[in-house]
Structure formats: structure tokens, C-alpha cells
Nucleic acid binder design. Structure first.
Length: 875
RNA sequence: GGAGGCAUAGCUCAGUUGGUUAGAGCGCUCGCUUCACAUGCGAGAGGUCGUAGGUUCGAGUCCUACUGUCUCUACCA
């Protein structure tokens, strides 16, 4: 077939994806004759479309999956989406707002109908985007956190945890978002520093002239104060403990209590205690049996407990009014500027209010312990290793997990309350009769579960848990979990303890973390900055392979990277390079018989490129195994561009266009062999272009994606031969170098003379030298004197090359060039001598290194002598 | 407050258990209509590897301190 001159991904990417799908290549079968290899997708939220972070996720995972599939594993990439409870609900509320509707207007059923419609629309879009990326996911197993299977797992887990006493319901301080009107987990709160104030307040002691000064950053909460605490060791307040204070504005009498929580050094050493609105105060309240008075409604306005003067006011308006009123009654001592970290909702960014509320919690301590152990005992390994420390840090200090959300979109909590007898029924299946009193007056808990509750089960819920399915048995535990380090706590940690608790096995063996893809200036991509990049637009312009290779190359695990257009462009150029190299091979192979490598006689150049290929196979395989995809990709880039294109293809031309039929046959065999293998090595990274070319190669059949990944073959390593051939390459480089230095155009043919011990190697590669260096003929000499013409010369490791250029050679410039070279060599000699004169080095360093150093020294000394001779000959 | 990352060429970054002459892309300079590719070819310039110590025969790589920078985490009223 005729290949286009330039790489045009649009002409084949969609077609090939369709072909792969139709042939069912992505489907992973439960096949006892194969070893399973499983990765579950970090399920994208159905809130919108994919961004570059997803593109990176999926490139890494798809590369690993394709690599393993080619290596003969039953490789499963399990795709799916996350319902993203709060994030999606926020979106739908926004959408309804544009129609002038609220949740309450439409009711729960209609709201959920809209949510499912949203899911169908955006979930479908995400799948299409993943396909554009070339992801080889098993779409027959496409999952959704709220589908029947995952929902069943959620109920199973909830009930089991409840029965084990690991889920409880209680009044605790939680993070409340007054805008989303729901509780949030600790992980869902983002802190940022806001400029604020410390308000110092004076609370008078009852029936006395004494008073206590307390400071607060949230003055409106003083309406709910039920005590003031001091440190029991604090001499200043010793006499006041047990006395009563009169709360300004409110008039409530509150006790002074002693509690270790109070830091004597900080502020006045006295703390106002508001158990309903502060987590620490809540604990103090429990210890001292204090009343819990909530002064705020769920929407952030003040409630009746706040008193008539403030009831109904927004929390921030109330704050201003209260400060004014305190000032008026003389209770405000001073206002001090204070930079304060304020919590914000991670979805809507409203200021979060710590509020006491009745919520469902998961008891974390018993779950955290085995989850820590699993990593300590290396049942799960983090790459990079350092993230295990971050994981420990979080797991060890973990608090109970608030899992109930006052939302509608999500897994409704499987708990029913009997209106007749008050019984609480926790059940895996829907309940309509009270098992205690037989009454029918049952009401299901209104709340839904934290979205991460279901994602925590993802590696096994998607495989069929709690049923004992063949999939679960075969593909679980999964092998690698790859995602950004920003969701270690939200997701990775929770999957680990959930997997261990519910399946008795770790959910995966390796955690591969990648960094954040930032913009060109190193900023995080965000909607507010408008600096987000749509992967689809990049694919449209440059092709999926270019994007994939750009995302993966030059990036180390766990490190942030920057997206830049110029990088994608560079990789598109690389794709074009691959394309054209292949075009060259295919064009030359047209109508020719392609022999297997074993059927032809290999030249030195042939052995060299085969040798380079073998080391590339070794390096790629090794680094894929270590998750060093960036290094593997780099090795391929260099091999393909520098070794194969710049050198071997050029070398092959003299054989291809020459008269010797045997040599031509040999070159064709090698070209096809090397290209085929290189394409296979590249395929996990750039699936489309490699498939398109592979199917057009004369020596292949079928699809590259189900072909065998190349294996290192020591018989083809040709180490000695390759090394020897590099001597020929050095000669070519030397001639080019000389030509450039005397401003001789590359195309102008020159005569070449060589002084060398290895004339056979040079004469057998004469054609290559003449072609690549632009040489008209090669002669052998012992010294420059024999040439009888002015020459420019260069010394290589094995020989000296002379190029007679007559008047073109500027004697002074040539001398200077040789002197500079001599100086460089002299530096090397000094370095090597220094090492070898060091007794410690000679005695302690590995023998091979010492030997290598000796050989180097010898070589450099020889080179120096030759250069000096050249300099002498010139003068 | 606690923890971690990063600091290597003008820019963006690699550098895998310490061991060739520290690499790449982009940019820059010079030269090329060489029969796959100008999305290209050839030849170059450019780095005291943040600072100061230490370990070692040997440090970009390991240790300590410092400086700068980014991030996570906690949330002291």
C-alpha cells in the first residue's frame, strides 16, 4: 500500500480502535493457562470531561496493560466512572438553578431522574474520550459506582461493618457546608489562610468585680458558649475554677472549668468553650458534662438559640452585629489582626462550619492497623517509595470517618427507622416491615453515603463482590493501582483498609503514583484560571500517540510535570520520524523477498543495529517492570531516532542501492526485523501508529497488539562486533567534523586516508563510510607525509583519519583545532592517571573498573601521541 | 506545628543499587534542495549539578546543616 508522506493520525486512529474493538482484543478472559494482570481505572467523575490528569492516568495504565498483554498475561483493564455524589449534585443544582428550580421544588425522585440523565450523558462522553486516547480497556466490564453490582457491594459492606460495630451513628462535630447543606469528611475540607481577627472578649465573674478575657476568631459562636476553660496548673486562675461567669449579650451563667487542653502560654490562658461549634470544645464538653447549644441552622443562619436579636441572620452578618453589640456593652477588649486558616468545602469553596450533628461514622482505629501493616510488611508497595511515609503519617493519625451526606445523589444509607416502635433496622435488602413490632411505618434514612465509600470498594465491587464470581477469584487481588498522589487519602488508603477488611486480601500489590500535570508556567490547571487543556483538542491536532508519548516521556514516577505544546509537537515529530522510517523500509521491501535474520549473512553494520536493538529490549523490559515508563520511553526514542534512523537506515542504503544481491537481501532482512521489534517495543506507548505500520509490514501478519513482546536474545547481542563497528562510526564522524571545520559542504565528496591497525574492518565498510561521510575514495597510509597534500586530520580511538583539502585547509585553524583536542585528551589523561595513582582506588574499586581505567589511559595516551604528531607534521 | 518534594545547560526536565568524558527536548550558532522524513540532515556553543561541611578509593547520586521554592497534613482558642 501507498503510505502518505507525512504522519496523519486522523487517517487511521479511529479506524484501528474500531477494529480492535470488533475483534474483541480488549476482552480479558478468565484463562487458567495464563497469569492474570489487573488494573482498575481510577474512575473519573461523571461531572464533566477528561482533563490531562486523566490522560496521564490512562496512558500509564494502558501502557502497562498492553505491555503485559503482549507478554502473554490475561491483562484486564477494568474501566468505569464514579457517581461523585457531592460534585455531581452541585452541578445538577446549578443546572436546575438556571431553570429557576431548586431540589425541593422538584423532589427527590425527579432530582434523581435528572441525575441519571446526567450520568448517561457525561458517563458516555467520558467513555468516548477514553477510546480516543487509545485505551485498551475491557468495555464489556464497564462499571459505575452506582450500578447494581457496586450498590450491592456497598450495602453488603455497610451492613457487615455495622454488625461488627465498626459503623455507628452519633452526635459529633463534623464539617458542615452551609451551601451544599451537607456534612463533609475531614478529607473534603481544604484549608486556606484568610486574613481575619482575634476578638478579645471580657466575661465577668458573677457577683464579683473579676473577669476573664478570652479570644476568639468566630465571635458569633459565643452565643453558644457553655463554659470557659483554664489549665488546672494555671496559678492565675486557680481561685476562679468552679466559679460562674455571666455570658455577655446572652446573660447565661456558665462555669469556669479546668482542663488540660488549655495551653497556658497561648493568649490569656482562658478559652471560651462552645461544644456545638468546635471539635476541641466538644471534647472538653464531654469531659465536663457541658450543655451543647447549637446556635446555627444548616444554612448558616443563626437559630432561635442565638436569641431574638440574631435569629435568622446570616452567620457573617451576625458576626458583625455581635461584635458591635459586645463593643456597646463593654465586653470587647480589643481586636487584633490574625491570619487564620479557614476550612472550605472542596466542592463549592464556602467556609465550612464545624457543627455538632447526628451522622454516621466508620470507626477507623481497627481498620487502620492492618492497613498500615500491609504496607509495613510489603504486601503493598508504593512507587515511589517515599509515599509510604505519607500514607503512614495519615493512617496513624486517622480519626473516625463521617460517611453520611445530606445529599440525594448517591447510595442511600441502608437503614430504616420504625415509626411505631423506634427500632433501627440495618439491612442489605429493602425493608417494609419492622422485624421488631411488625409495623409498616418504616422510613429509610434520608441521607446518602460519602462518594468515597463506594470508590473504596472499587477493586472488588467491580469484579462481583460479594458474590464469589470467577472474575473475583481470578483477577483479584489486582496488580497495580495507578493514580495521582493527590488522592492517596481519599481513595488509595480507603481501598487498602476496605480490601483487607472485606476480602481478607490486599486490593493490589503495587501502588504507582504519578504527579500533577501542570500548565506551561507550572501552575495547577483549574477552571478558575482557565488554563485547563482538553486532551481531545490535543489529540485532534497532533494525534493520541503524540499526546501519550509527550505525557510519559521525561517524567519520573511521583513527580509533577508540565504540559507544553512544544513537547507534544516534538513527539508528533517523533511519530513522523517513525512513520517515515517505516515508509522507507516498506517502500524498499516492496516486491522483494524478506528473509528471516538467520537466513542472511550479517554485515558489521547489521550486527551493530541488532545489538543496539537487543540492549533496547533489555532496557525497556527492565524499566517497564520498575514502572520507570519515562526511562523506557526515552530509550525507545533514542534507539529509534539516533540508532535506527540516523545511522542504520543511512548505512543500509549502500546495500539497498548497491549491486550485491546478497547484501541487499541482508539489509532488507535486518531492516524488517529491527523495525518490527522496535514497533512492538513502542506499541504500549503509541498503540495507533505502531499498529498501522505493523499491518503494512511485509514480514508480519495480524495485529501488533496481540503479538508477542520482544524478548532479549543474548545470541543477538553481538557485543564485540558492535563495539568494533563503532570504530567505523567514529571515522565517519571524524570526516564530517573535519568537513564542517573547514566549511566544506557535506555534499562535496572528499578523498579519505586512514592510518589504522584494522584495515579489514575499514575496507569491508568502505561503502558505508563513503556514503555517510561523503567520501569519494579511501586510501590507507602510515602517516600524513605519504599523502603529499595538505590534510586536516582527526584522531579516533582506533585510527587517524586524514582529509586532503588542499587550499581549503587553514593551517593555523587546523593547528588550533588539534591543540584543543590535544588539551581535552590531556585532561582525560590527567583524570585517569589521578585515579590510577590513587592507591585506594586501585585496591578497593572493583577490578573491572580499574582495568577499564587502565585501558582508557592507554588509549588516551596513544591518541595524544598521534595528535602531537599531527601538530608537528603541520609545522 | 508536623511531614515530604524540588533546586542539574537560556527554558522544561531525565540521570534507575555511588563508578565511562553529566544527557534529552525546545531555544541558540554555523552549514546543508544527500534519492523515508525541512514535522528533516550534519557540525557546534552552552553546566564549578543551590551553599557549606561530612562519609567514601570515588558523590549530581548517600549523611548533616543552611538558603530558596513548592506541596501535603494539623488546625491552638
Amino acid at each position: 500500500m501507498e503510505m502518505q508522506k507525512t504522519y496523519d493520525p486522523k487517517s487511521f486512529e479511529d479506524r484501528l480502535y474500531k477494529e480492535w474493538t470488533e475483534k474483541n482484543y480488549f476482552r480479558a478472559e478468565v484463562d487458567p493457562s495464563k497469569i492474570p494482570f489487573t488494573i482498575v481505572i481510577p474512575p473519573p467523575n461523571i461531572t464533566g470531561q477528561l482533563h490531562l490528569g486523566h490522560a496521564l492516568d490512562n496512558t500509564i495504565i494502558d501502557a502497562l496493560i498492553r505491555f503485559k498483554r503482549m507478554q502473554g498475561y490475561s491483562a484486564l483493564y477494568l474501566p468505569g466512572c464514579d457517581h461523585a455524589s457531592i460534585a455531581t449534585e452541585v452541578k445538577i443544582v446549578e443546572e436546575m438553578k438556571r431553570e429557576g428550580l431548586t431540589k425541593q421544588d422538584v423532589g427527590r425522585d425527579e432530582f434523581l431522574r435528572r441525575a441519571w440523565a446526567w450520568k448517561d450523558k457525561y458517563g458516555g462522553r467520558i467513555v468516548e474520550q477514553l477510546k480516543k486516547m487509545g485505551v485498551s480497556a475491557d468495555w464489556s466490564r464497564l462499571a459505575f459506582t452506582m450500578d447494581e453490582r457496586c450498590s450491592k457491594a456497598v450495602r453488603e459492606v455497610f451492613v457487615n461493618l455495622y454488625e461488627k460495630g465498626l459503623i455507628y451513628r452519633g452526635d459529633r462535630i463534623i464539617n458542615w457546608c452551609p451551601s451544599c447543606k451537607t456534612a463533609l469528611s475531614d478529607a473534603e475540607v481544604e484549608y486556606s489562610e484568610d486574613a481575619s481577627f482575634f476578638w478579645h472578649l471580657k466575661y465577668p465573674v458573677k457577683d464579683s468585680d473579676e473577669f476573664i478575657i478570652v479570644a476568639t476568631t468566630r465571635p458569633e459562636t459565643m452565643l453558644g458558649d457553655t463554659a470557659v476553660a483554664v489549665n488546672p496548673k494555671d496559678k492565675r486562675y486557680e481561685h476562679m475554677v468552679g466559679k460562674t461567669l455571666v455570658l455577655p449579650l446572652v446573660g447565661r451563667e456558665i462555669p469556669i472549668v479546668a482542663d488540660d487542653y488549655v495551653d497556658m502560654e497561648f493568649g490569656s490562658g482562658a478559652v471560651k468553650i462552645t461544644p456545638a461549634h468546635d471539635p476541641n470544645d466538644f471534647e472538653v464538653g464531654l469531659r465536663h458534662n457541658l450543655e451543647v447549644i447549637r446556635v446555627m441552622n444548616d444554612d448558616g443562619t443563626m437559630n432561635a438559640n442565638a436569641g431574638k436579636a440574631y435569629e435568622g441572620m446570616d452567620r457573617f452578618a451576625a458576626r458583625e452585629k455581635i461584635v458591635e453589640d459586645l463593643k456597646a456593652c463593654g465586653a470587647l477588649v480589643k481586636i487584633e489582626p490574625h491570619a487564620h486558616n479557614v476550612g472550605h468545602c472542596y466542592r463549592c469553596h464556602s467556609t465550612v462550619e464545624p457543627i455538632v450533628s447526628k451522622q454516621w461514622f466508620v470507626k477507623m482505629a481497627p481498620l487502620a492497623k492492618p492497613a498500615i501493616d500491609a504496607v509495613v510488611r510489603n504486601k503493598i508497595h508504593f512507587t515511589p517509595e517515599r509515599f509510604s511515609k505519607i500514607y503512614y503519617n495519615w493512617m496513624e493519625g486517622i480519626k473516625d470517618w463521617c460517611i453520611s451526606r445530606q445529599l440525594w445523589w448517591g447510595h442511600r444509607i441502608p437503614v430504616w427507622y420504625c415509626g411505631d416502635c423506634g427500632e433501627t433496622i440495618v439491612s442489605k435488602t429493602d425493608v417494609d416491615t419492622c422485624p421488631h413490632c411488625g409495623g409498616k411505618n418504616l422510613k429509610q434514612d434520608e441521607d446518602v453515603l460519602d462518594t468515597w465509600f463506594s470508590s473504596a470498594l472499587w477493586p472488588f465491587s467491580t469484579l462481583g463482590y460479594p458474590e464469589k464470581t470467577a472474575d473475583l477469584d481470578y483477577f483479584y487481588p489486582t496488580d497495580v493501582l495507578s493514580c495521582g498522589y493527590d488522592i492517596i487519602f481519599f481513595w488509595v488508603a480507603r481501598m487498602i483498609f476496605s480490601g483487607i477488611e472485606h476480602t481478607g486480601k490486599v486490593p493490589f500489590r503495587d501502588v504507582l503514583l504519578h504527579g500533577i500535570v501542570r500548565d506551561e508556567q507550572g501552575r495547577k490547571m483549574s477552571k478558575s484560571l482557565g488554563n485547563g487543556i482538553d486532551p481531545l483538542e490535543v489529540i485532534d491536532e497532533y494525534g493520541a500517540d503524540s499526546l501519550r508519548f509527550a505525557l510519559i516521556s521525561g517524567v519520573a514516577p511521583g513527580n509533577d510535570s508540565r504540559y507544553s505544546r512544544s513537547k507534544v509537537e516534538a513527539m508528533r515529530n517523533f511519530m513522523n520520524k517513525i512513520w517515515n522510517a517505516s515508509r522507507f523500509v516498506i517502500m524498499n521491501a516492496e516486491g522483494e523477498e524478506i528473509c528471516a535474520l538467520g537466513e542472511v549473512k550479517l554485515t558489521a553494520a547489521d550486527k551493530w543495529i541488532v545489538s543496539r536493538l537487543e540492549s533496547c529490549i533489555k532496557e525497556v523490559t527492565l524499566n517497564m517492570g520498575k514502572f520507570e515508563l519515562g526511562i523506557a520511553a526515552g530509550a525507545l526514542y533514542d534507539f529509534m531516532w539516533s540508532d535506527f534512523c540516523d545511522w542504520y537506515i543511512e548505512l543500509s542504503k549502500s546495500a539497498l542501492y548497491g549491486e550485491d544481491a546478497g547484501k541487499k537481501k541482508g539489509a532488507l532482512a535486518v531492516l524488517c526485523f529491527v523495525l518490527e521489534n522496535a514497533l512492538k517495543l513502542l506499541h504500549p506507548f503509541v498503540p495507533f501508529i505502531t499498529e498501522e505500520i505493523y499491518q503494512n509490514l511485509p514480514n508480519t501478519s495480524g495485529s501488533i497488539m496481540i503479538s508477542d513482546f520482544p524478548r532479549y536474545n543474548s545470541k543477538l547481542a553481538y557485543k564485540k562486533e558492535a563495539k568494533a563497528f563503532e570504530g567505523v562510526m567514529d571515522i565517519i564522524k571524524a570526516v564530517r567534523n573535519i568537513k564542517t571545520s573547514v566549511n566544506c559542504p557535506p555534499s562535496k565528496k572528499v578523498k579519505l586516508f586512514v592510518a589504522s591497525q584494522n584495515r579489514r574492518l575499514i575496507s569491508s565498510n568502505a561503502a558505508a563510510i563513503m556514503k555517510l561521510a561523503g567520501v569519494s575514495g579511501i586510501g590507507f597510509v602510515e602517516s600524513a607525509a605519504e599523502i603529499g597534500e595538505r590534510t586536516a586530520s582527526q584522531v579516533t580511538e582506533g585510527c587517524t583519519v586524514f582529509v586532503p583539502l588542499g587550499e581549503l585547509v587553514d593551517l593555523e585553524k587546523e593547528k588550533a583545532r588539534l591543540a584543543a583536542e590535544s588539551e581535552r585528551i590531556q585532561g582525560e589523561i590527567a583524570r585517569a592517571e589521578g585515579k590510577l595513582h590513587n592507591r585506594g582506588f586501585v585496591e578497593k574499586a572493583p577490578k573491572n573498573l580499574v582495568e577499564a581505567e587502565r585501558a582508557k589511559l592507554e588509549k588516551f595516551i596513544e591518541m595524544r601521541e598521534k595528535i602531537e604528531k599531527q601538530i608537528k607534521d603541520l609545522s
